[in-house]
Amino acid sequence: MSAVRVRLCGEEFIATERQPLLIGREADISVDDNRYLHRRFLQVACVEGLWVLRNVGAQLTATVSDLQGLFQAWLAPGAQVPLLSTHTIVYFTAGPTTYEIDILLDEPPFTVTPVISDPDSSDGGPVTMGGMSLTTKQKLVLLALTERALRRGDRGATSIPSSKVAAQRLRWTLVAFNRQLDNICQKLAAFGVRGLHGDSENLAANRRARLAEYALAARLVTRADLALLEGVEADGEELA
């Protein structure tokens, strides 16, 4: 059975049928010296001939996606998902930092033929993504939260801005930003996306991180969309 390669920040690690890999703060793959990160969080292992990704942590979750964004899974503590694609991307957040890991499978059990869709969002109208319509303002919210991740060249660690910083990036008021944030979270929750509710500041921070993870995993925004951020102007009346 072929091995699985796990890539983090340019380094590559190998998991074999007899030697699974643990990912965490103090594990086979030491992600970061981040006190919010579990010492042992994720595991890549072979179970009855099938490669799986397990969440062996107690609190943190991860978002799992294929390279095309056609598949997304929310990996809660104690859960596991099979690794079915040639290229799987894993996003997870610990404290203020979001991480991105690549898992490469040379001989996947299934292959997927991607359906390419490149909607034109330049006219300011709604954009349909996977059956869900996003307005330009909603896409701007996603871009403000994921801009650092989209702009960096190497996959690895990044940070999710606070609502205040994201609002300033868009030249919106904080109230206007939170209104659009609430709208898109409610819309995604109605589509079955989990982890997007938060009332306290801690839960709200988790909600922003989860929204950013899902937007990146589902390709709701890409590097090509960053052009929307260029020359963003305040809309005083509507976004006051």
Rank of each mutant, 00 (worst) to 15 (best):
Leu174Trp: 07
Cys9Phe: 10
Val115Asp: 09
Ala227Ile: 10
Asp154Trp: 09
Val221Pro: 00
Leu142Asn: 00
Thr86Gly: 15
Leu140Arg: 10
Val232Gln: 10
Leu53Tyr: 01
Gly156Val: 07
Lys164Thr: 14
Glu238Lys: 11
Ala218Thr: 06
Glu238Gln: 10
Ala167Ser: 15
Gly124Cys: 11
Pro109Phe: 12
Gln80Ala: 13
Ala62Phe: 05
Leu229Asn: 05
Gln68Met: 09
Asn183Lys: 12
Thr136Ala: 15
Ser65Met: 04
Thr61Ala: 08
Arg54Cys: 10
Gln186Cys: 11
Gly78Pro: 09
Ile184Phe: 01
Ala79Pro: 00
Gly153Asn: 10
Asp66His: 05
Val115Thr: 14
Ala166Asp: 02
Ala209Phe: 07
Glu17Val: 13
Leu228Met: 14
Gly156Asn: 09
Glu147Ile: 03
Leu21Ser: 03
Ala166Ser: 08
Gly69Ser: 08
Asp32Ala: 11
Pro108Ile: 03
Ala234Asn: 14
Pro20Gln: 02
Asn183Gly: 05
Ser159Lys: 08
Ala62Gly: 07
Glu213Tyr: 04
Gln59Pro: 01
Gln138Asp: 08
Pro20Ile: 04
Glu11Asn: 11
Gln72Leu: 08
Lys187Pro: 03
Ala190Ser: 15
Thr61His: 06
Asn206Ser: 09
Glu213Phe: 04
Asp120His: 13
Gly131Thr: 04
Thr222Gly: 12
Arg194Val: 15
Gly153Asp: 13
Met129Gly: 01
Ala217Cys: 12
Asp28Lys: 01
Val165Asp: 14
Leu84Arg: 13
Ala204Val: 03
Asp66Cys: 07
Leu105His: 08
Leu50Asp: 10
Asp118Trp: 10
Pro77Arg: 00
Leu105Pro: 03
Arg5Tyr: 06
Phe177Trp: 03
Ala209Glu: 02
Val81Met: 03
Val90Ile: 15
Asp154Gln: 13
Tyr36Glu: 06
Leu75Ala: 05
Leu174Gln: 14
Asn55Phe: 02
Gln138Met: 10
Thr111Leu: 12
Val193Arg: 04
Glu233Tyr: 06
Ser163Tyr: 04
Thr135Leu: 06
His197Arg: 13
Leu229Ile: 11
Leu228Trp: 03
Pro82Ile: 05
Val56Lys: 03
Gly236Pro: 08
Arg155Ser: 12
Glu201Lys: 06
Asn183Ile: 10
Ala94Val: 05
Trp51Gln: 02
Asp118Ile: 12
Arg155His: 13
His38Ala: 10
Leu228Tyr: 03
Tyr99Gly: 04
Gly130Trp: 05
Tyr36Lys: 04
Thr86Glu: 15
Ala190Asp: 14
Val221Leu: 06
Thr86Ser: 15
Ala204Cys: 08
Ser162Asp: 11
Leu21Gln: 01
Leu181Ile: 04
Val6Tyr: 00
Leu145Lys: 01
Ala79Gln: 12
Ala215Leu: 08
Arg155Pro: 00
Ile23Cys: 02
Tyr91Trp: 15
Ser163Val: 07
Glu213Ser: 12
Asp154Glu: 15
Ala176Val: 07
Glu107Ala: 15
Pro119His: 06
Asn55Pro: 02
Gly195Arg: 00
Ala62Cys: 11
Leu70Met: 10
Gly130Thr: 07
Glu201Pro: 02
Ser162Glu: 11
Phe71Gly: 04
Arg18Val: 06
Val115Gly: 07
Glu238Ser: 13
Gln68Arg: 08
Thr86Asn: 13
Gly24Glu: 02
Arg155Val: 07
Ile103Cys: 02
Leu143Ala: 09
Ala240Met: 15
Val141Ala: 05
